[in-house]
Amino acid sequence: MATYETFARVYDSIMDDSLYDLWTDFSLRHLPKKKNAKLLELACGTGIQSIRFKQAGFDVTGLDLSQDMLDLAEKRAKSAKVSIPFVQGNMLDLSSVGTFDYVTCYSDSICYMDDEVDVGDVFVQVYEHLNEGGTFIFDVHSTYQTDEVFPGYSYHENAEDFAMVWDTYEDEAPHSVVHELTFFIQDEDGRFTRFDEVHEERTYDLLTYDILLEQAGFNKVKVYADFEDKEPTETSARWFFVCEK
Score class of each variant (00 low, 15 high):
76 R>E: 11
42 L>S: 07
1 M>C: 09
187 D>R: 04
190 G>N: 07
21 D>S: 15
12 D>A: 11
226 D>I: 01
111 C>N: 15
20 Y>I: 09
64 D>R: 13
34 K>Q: 10
61 T>P: 00
134 G>A: 05
173 A>F: 01
216 A>Q: 03
221 V>G: 04
153 Y>I: 03
207 L>Y: 11
43 A>S: 07
4 Y>F: 14
168 T>Q: 09
147 D>P: 04
52 R>T: 15
174 P>C: 06
187 D>H: 08
10 V>A: 04
139 D>H: 01
215 Q>R: 15
220 K>Q: 14
226 D>E: 12
24 T>P: 03
44 C>D: 00
192 F>M: 11
145 Q>C: 12
18 S>M: 13
197 E>M: 11
108 D>E: 14
187 D>A: 13
101 D>W: 02
218 F>M: 14
215 Q>P: 11
29 R>P: 03
38 K>G: 06
128 E>S: 11
96 S>W: 07
29 R>S: 12
188 E>H: 08
153 Y>L: 12
147 D>A: 15
228 E>Q: 12
27 S>G: 10
218 F>G: 03
189 D>L: 03
31 L>R: 00
118 D>L: 03
87 V>Q: 13
83 S>L: 05
194 R>M: 15
193 T>P: 04
84 I>Q: 02
104 T>K: 05
200 E>P: 05
227 F>T: 04
223 V>R: 10
123 F>A: 00
123 F>D: 02
200 E>V: 07
53 F>G: 01
173 A>Y: 10
57 G>M: 09
173 A>T: 01
24 T>G: 09
205 D>K: 01
204 Y>K: 01
56 A>L: 13
85 P>N: 11
13 S>C: 12
170 E>A: 06
12 D>T: 15
146 T>H: 08
223 V>K: 08
241 F>D: 01
54 K>N: 06
22 L>I: 04
234 E>L: 14
233 T>C: 04
92 L>V: 12
130 L>M: 10
202 R>N: 11
25 D>Q: 10
93 D>C: 01
110 I>A: 03
216 A>I: 02
206 L>R: 09
126 V>D: 09
41 E>D: 13
58 F>K: 01
119 V>Y: 01
41 E>T: 06
145 Q>V: 06
160 E>H: 11
124 V>N: 07
4 Y>N: 06
233 T>S: 13
98 G>P: 02
105 C>V: 09
204 Y>V: 00
111 C>I: 05
65 L>W: 08
36 N>S: 10
199 H>C: 07
53 F>D: 00
77 A>R: 05
149 V>Y: 02
88 Q>Y: 08
119 V>H: 00
111 C>A: 09
7 F>K: 01
99 T>Y: 07
63 L>Y: 12
19 L>W: 05
176 S>K: 07
78 K>T: 14
117 V>Y: 09
43 A>T: 02
156 H>F: 05
78 K>G: 11
86 F>A: 03
